[in-house]
Amino acid sequence: MSPVIAIVFKDIVIEMRSKESVSSMLMFGVLVLTIFSFAFEPSSIERSLIAPGTLWVAFSFAAILGLNRSLAMEIDNDCLQGLLLAPVDRGNLYIGKVASNFTFMMIAEVIVLPIFVIFNNLKFNLQFLEIAGIAVLGTFAIAAIGSILSTISANTRMKEVMLPVLQIPLTVPVVISSVEATSMVLSGDTKGISSWLYLLAGFSIVYLTVSYLVFEFVVEE
């Protein structure tokens, strides 16, 4: 079994037993959607303007929650030390963490997205699938940068507080691109959507590569 798959398998087994990460992300995502519907009182005209923003606030903040949880799990009982003792390339540890974080975020989003559609009276049609596709791209970008930033923040004195401080400024391009692409889909005018999708894909590829290369400096003692 390759090391990446082993790490993902380990994380999935732990998650199946504890259900901490997915349940907290899911709960948080639904809560954000609820709060926003109180805050904006959306009429049908404003909905297509506000809805993409609420969706991506829910996704990106829930992702931070999940990333914090995933690293806290490794820090408890020095599990990270155990992982580092394994004769595995450091970059593969990073790829493994990205894969498992991405998986958990996607599981939470698979439930949050239909709730979003119902709350906003949208339809389960092709539009829904297109938004789901954007969600996959955007979430992967967030997982790619979030996995390395959460490992950095785990070294600091205020672990949970530090991650959003590091992550939110760096994920601005992801949030802008995803929100713009989502609102294009909702408004039905998808001209020029490809440049946003390319930006999301490019962001993921660049951060995946850079983080793969520098991850060993984050975990070295």
Partner: peptide, 16 residues
């Protein structure tokens, strides 16, 4: 490491 990640972010921020 954060410095490198931040520097890589600047062109993406610029474009988006």
């Amino acid at each position: 490491v954060f410095g490198i990640l931040a520097m890589v972010d600047v062109p993406f921020n610029y474009l988006s």
